[in-house]
Design a protein around this nucleic acid. Structure first.
Ligand code: FES
Ligand code: FES
Lengths: 146, 146
DNA sequence: TTATTAAAAGACAAAAAGGTCTTTTGGTAA
DNA sequence: TTACCAAAAGACCTTTTTGTCTTTTAATAA
């Protein structure tokens, strides 16, 4: 569905948001551990997210990552655009250069509604809304033994 | 959506099916040209499809690729399993090791219906049904200038 | 039976994705 | 003001995906 970078970014951002609510600013190694991502890789990904303006960071003792409380919520479509380019479900499932009802592929008719549902999902849900869901419903960001 | 190999395989198989209906057996270079795929790459892909049993082939003069008329239609989920492994939309969008309603990710609830629609699509449609659609509706397998 | 044709096989290579590590820079706190 | 800490930057590596090419094998037709 999404690539690894997007998955780690999603889980990482949600973890950071959750910690921010507890007045904490987690660092790269904590995030890596808690979302089960490769430590150096998540470090690089979080750096990129800061450069993109999704996150803020502080160096040195007590440093770490946090959300700017003044900024609006981040729809995950924005995250996906940043991590994988804006291909976000606009393309043709069949490989045509563009998905166009004037030149549809044989999957077009049935695929378009699915694409629209996906686009709706990633437009409506935000990092913050997902974090809230995790918090309220006690969900896990990693595999859990039952 | 799908990877390149799957896309080329899909378009290639449909093109071959369409030609078979006209009592023709296209070869690799014809298929490559008609679906706008890299010639050596589609050659390799078609070879694999023959090994998987999706297609038959004949060497030498008048040779080429064709479907065994005695075999049942091929649902595209089978093609996808062959080209990309059976990950076919069973996984978690969030990157959890498995998509499980007992340990759902925050996207689970809204993602599951989409996944089901996708699975329905790729289970119901076959190479043959798509070829028929292309034939009946005069669709194009490549980009078209209008 | 020989020339020709076209797929099969498999080595090779470029590009992208995924991941690791070291060095530098900018903060914090004692 | 120094010692330490943690992110930033960027080089480097591995694996997977995508693509190319050469050689071999098998079929056909003259
Ligand atoms: S043209 Fe292929 S999905 Fe729309
Ligand atoms: S658990 Fe993530 S999609 Fe089902």
């Amino acid at each position: 569905m999404f690539n690894k970078e997007t998955e780690y970014a999603l889980r990482g951002l949600i973890y950071i948001k959750l910690q921010n609510l507890k007045e904490r600013r987690p660092g790269t190694s904590e995030v890596a551990k808690e979302i089960e991502a490769p430590p150096f890789f998540i470090a690089k990904i979080l750096q990129r997210l800061v450069r993109f303006g999704f996150l803020k960071s502080l160096k040195g003792k007590g440093g770490g990552f946090f959300f700017d409380p003044d900024k609006p919520d981040i729809p995950i479509i924005k995250l996906i655009s940043a991590t994988e380019g804006n291909r976000s479900f606009s393309g043709c499932s069949f490989g045509l250069k563009q998905c166009d009802s004037n030149n549809p592929c044989p999957l077009h008719e049935k695929y378009v509604p699915i694409k629209e549902a996906l686009n709706k999902l990633i437009t409506e849900e935000t990092i913050q809304s997902l974090a809230e869901k995790v918090y309220k419903e006690g969900l896990s960001l990693i595999e859990v033994m039952k």
